[in-house]
C-alpha cells in the first residue's frame, strides 16, 4: 500500500458560497412599501377611501351636495324671505295684512314716556295799569 497524497479540496462555486444579502432585501421592501403607500395616499386624496368602499363614498358625496343646494333655494328664498320685510316695515302699504297694521308700530310709542303732551303754559300774569 502506497500513500497517496490527498488532493486539496475543490473550491466551491461562487453561487453556492453566497448567502442572502441584507441590503437588497431592505431596498426592495422599502420600494414596495413606498409604492403601495403612494398609491393609497392618492386614493385617499381623491376621495376613494378603500376602507369605506368605492360605491359608498361616491353616493354619500353626491347626496350631501344636492341637499344643501335644495334647502337654500326652497326654504330661504321661497318660504321664509317674504315674512321678515312685512313684520319689520310696519307700513300698511308694504303689508296690508291686519297683523302688520296692528303690529308693533304703536307699541314703542306707548312705551316711551316722551310722547305725552306737554302741559299748556301758564297764562301770563294779568296787569293792572292806568285806564
Amino acid at each position: 500500500m502506497t500513500d497517496v497524497p490527498s488532493p486539496a479540496p475543490a473550491p466551491r462555486p461562487a453561487s453556492a458560497r453566497r448567502g442572502p444579502r441584507f441590503g437588497p432585501t431592505i431596498l426592495a421592501a422599502a420600494a414596495t412599501f413606498l409604492v403601495l403607500f403612494e398609491f393609497l395616499a392618492f386614493q385617499l386624496s381623491s376621495g376613494r377611501d378603500p376602507a369605506l368602499g368605492a360605491s359608498v363614498a361616491s353616493d354619500s358625496k353626491g347626496v350631501a351636495t344636492r341637499g344643501v343646494v335644495h334647502r337654500r333655494v326652497i326654504r330661504t328664498k321661497v318660504v321664509h324671505l317674504p315674512r321678515p320685510p312685512s313684520s319689520q316695515s310696519g307700513s300698511p302699504a308694504a303689508s296690508p295684512t291686519p297683523t302688520v297694521n296692528l303690529a308693533p308700530a304703536p307699541a314703542p310709542a306707548a312705551a316711551t314716556p316722551s310722547p305725552s303732551p306737554a302741559p299748556a303754559p301758564a297764562p301770563a300774569p294779568p296787569v293792572t295799569s292806568s285806564s
Binding site: 300774569p125 294779568p126 296787569v127 293792572t128 295799569s129 292806568s130 285806564s131
Partner: peptide, 26 residues
C-alpha cells in the same frame, strides 16, 4: 277766572289759588 277791563280786574272762581297781578308804574 280773571276779567280785567283796562286797569280794573276782578278775580273769581271756586279755587283758593290766588293770581299774581303785575302793577304798571304810571
Amino acid at each position: 277766572c280773571v276779567v280785567g277791563c283796562g286797569g280794573d280786574l276782578r278775580v273769581g272762581g271756586a279755587s283758593a289759588d290766588p293770581f299774581e297781578v303785575l302793577v304798571e308804574h304810571p
